[in-house]
């Protein structure tokens, strides 16, 4: 499962990146702690009021939220292409 977050806050566009940290009681099952390159605030995926959001846990954007736009399942390329024949393909 992958997640799409908005990266607009207060009219600014930010860039998210892995902070190098993961978080969780069990190391193997821990989840990525993200940061934004602009302020180096830390962000973590949480449920708040029943909604999944990315929450600023430290730094300039502490207590702020970036909404989850969608959760996306893993599919094979032929499966995805069948659903969306005009899909674009994105590389790193």
């Amino acid at each position: 499962m992958a997640v799409v977050y908005s990266r607009e806050i207060d009219g600014k566009v930010i860039h998210l990146a892995p902070s190098g940290w993961t978080y969780g009681p069990v190391r193997k099952e821990s989840l990525f702690v993200l940061m934004d390159k602009e302020t180096e605030s830390l962000w973590f995926h949480m449920k708040r009021k029943g909604k999944a959001v990315l929450v600023g846990i430290s730094g300039f954007y502490a207590d702020r939220e970036l909404p989850v736009i969608q959760h996306i399942p893993e599919l094979t390329w032929p499966e995805w292409q069948k659903l969306h024949p005009d899909s674009k393909f994105v590389r790193d």
């Binding site: 990146a17 892995p18 902070s19 190098g20 940290w21 993961t22 978080y23 969780g24 009681p25 190391r27 821990s30 702690v33 940061m35 180096e40």
Partner: peptide, 11 residues
């Protein structure tokens, strides 16, 4: 509960 700490930019 914070693990790895491989550094910003490592990934």
């Amino acid at each position: 509960f914070f693990h790895f700490g491989i550094g910003a930019g490592a990934i």
